[in-house]
Write a protein that binds this DNA or RNA. Structure first.
Lengths: 151, 151
DNA sequence: AACTCCGGTCACAAATATTGACCAGCACCA
DNA sequence: TGGTGCTGGTCAATATTTGTGACCGGAGTT
């Protein structure tokens, strides 16, 4: 309590952690990654990301817009198209976010093996063998279901 | 639809996004950052991070352990001490996570200005001026309260 | 004897995420 | 002329996650 000479002690932690919660958010990362390539329209992103609900997409985009990372442009065309693009700030965010996404992608198989091993050593070796053979998980959902059953 | 030559198209997206949800999680980031410096014990972390409930700390640590990023060691001493440390995988995760945390810390003031500006241009300029003068927000909670009032 | 710290777990309440329906306008197709 | 689908959303209800406070046993402290 009386001691906090740590580099990231309480006062900063609070504000940083709040922002981290948004910036490191699952959907935020995916949206930033998507917009990094090129600006997109609403449903275009929805389709590409896949698995995101309209509401979450709307909400996350609105938050990102508020934070000044995404610019929202309404083209008053026949069917009103709304284009989302990364601002300079958003583009600077894309750097660490991309790093995180790349790490995630690179270590995904390893983590699935770890999970299987943790959940029950029984079939873990088999799964590990499978992974060795295939180099990558064929359909990640299968593994997820397996672990859910065990939990 | 018929076109998805994108580097991160749907099938992978699902698995990646699930993992991103954990890896980019607010508490995960803070825990990894804390453990990056040195291994810690349970209540030690709880005190240092501050604002995390026991349950969330337990839960997050358990998840990290399952994913093989954190090693849990129980010292069967007089009061059983539990030490958490980053595994090699965890340490490799610390790299992008640190990058994200650093970005967050660096751009925190800017984002607070953006938010204030978005919420109501009225006091935004004043806030911006304040920020210019101080170089950093004195107490972030104040700004948060302001924006909450507006929403 | 009463209190506190250790590392949790449990049940419950509150916040948050996701689902699915719906909206209005226009285009395409038959 | 009516059915279908696309545009970018909003809304209510529900599922999931997160946070709260109490409790646990054992040991040391006062």
């Amino acid at each position: 309590m009386t001691e906090n000479p740590h580099p990231h002690s309480n006062p900063d932690c609070r504000a940083v952690s709040e922002l981290l919660g948004r910036v490191g958010d699952k959907w935020t990362v995916l949206i930033v990654k998507a917009l990094e390539a090129k600006p997109r329209r609403f449903n275009e992103m929805k389709r590409e990301i896949g698995g995101i609900s309209q509401q979450m997409l709307t909400r996350t985009l609105k938050t990102l817009e508020r934070d000044g990372m995404v610019a929202r442009t309404v083209h008053a065309t026949v069917p009103p198209q709304v284009e989302y693009a990364l601002t300079p700030l958003g583009r600077s965010l894309a750097v660490p976010v991309t790093a995180l996404a790349d790490w995630t992608f690179a270590h995904l198989p390893q983590i699935h093996v770890n999970r299987a091993a943790y959940d029950g050593g029984a079939s873990a070796s088999q799964l590990a063998a499978l992974l060795e053979l295939r180099g990558k998980i064929t359909w990640e959902g299968d593994l997820d279901e397996m672990r859910r059953d065990r939990l």
